[in-house]
Amino acid sequence: MPPLLDIRGLHTEFRTSAGTVRAVDGISYSVQAGETVAIVGESGSGKSVGAMSILRLIPDPPGRITAGEVLFDGQDLLKLTEEQMRQLRGSQIGMIFQEPMTSLNPVLTIGRQITETLEQHRGATPAAARERALELLGLVGIADAARRLKQYPHQLSGGMRQRIMIAIALACEPKLIIADEPTTALDVTIQAQILELMKDLTQRLNIALIVITHNLGVVARYATRVNVMYAGRIVESGSAAAIYHDPRHPYTIALLRSVPRLDRPRQARLDPVEGQPPDLTRLDAGCAFRPRCRFATDACAAGRPVLAQAGLEDGHLAACFNSGSLSHTDQAA
């Protein structure tokens, strides 16, 4: 079966006063219906920009998608008109943004924001839309739904606002949901509840899910495939099991080592990835992780490594010149 979403060679840039930021620097991956792909990686590595590029929500200027294809159900979204894109957003592709306070409209009630989507995309009557809105709030675990519908975003807690965003994304039962940090603002019990709900929906309705998250526990539980990003590129890609138990990129190894874990004794001090995140306006010709990499060799300065088969699992890819010789004692688990 052809994938629901197939991203090929996507490049997105920003012109800033400091220079051109190559925020997404040639990423390719695909997502099957019913699959959950997790995107993890360094802050500023292009996870959100990559997701926004799929929906063509990059502010232009300063941003611009400069190359690539985004094939959704076989058609290249980058070739659609703005009007066609508007139709698609919210109905076929749902989006949960990283910052719910800025993506909810502060002057509209919660209820209005949900019903608006349903009326626009589904042609629902106001009464039917309200019924569905109540149902959706229940689905995302918000009590006293009728009263909450009359409230404004600032009257809700951060986690509630996030659940409202999730309710809006689910409203039209899209084929693909892109969730950018959907549960960071939530406590673990609600996080678990919502993720179980999203997992159930993806399986039952065959919805594909791209989830961007920093929570490696969440990834371990829900992802069928994991893409690790660094400096605008995917540096490692594979099943969750391959990524966690046989990481083949030094950044992934460092990432896994840096988390405090409840299933292990408390450490005296955390072991972060040392050094500064890269300045995307000033990348040189070598591997972008090189300045922070414990495995770097002379070869790493010569060019940027590309994704290639690594490890034992078929389709486990890593972009590192030394991925075959990373010593096992350095692995996380």
């Binding site: 990686g41 360094e42 940090e181 990432l255 990835v273």
Partner: peptide, 12 residues
């Protein structure tokens, strides 16, 4: 919570 875990460890 908005930080990726490697930076999170630095900030902690």
């Amino acid at each position: 919570s908005a930080l990726d875990v490697s930076i999170q460890a630095q900030v902690i």
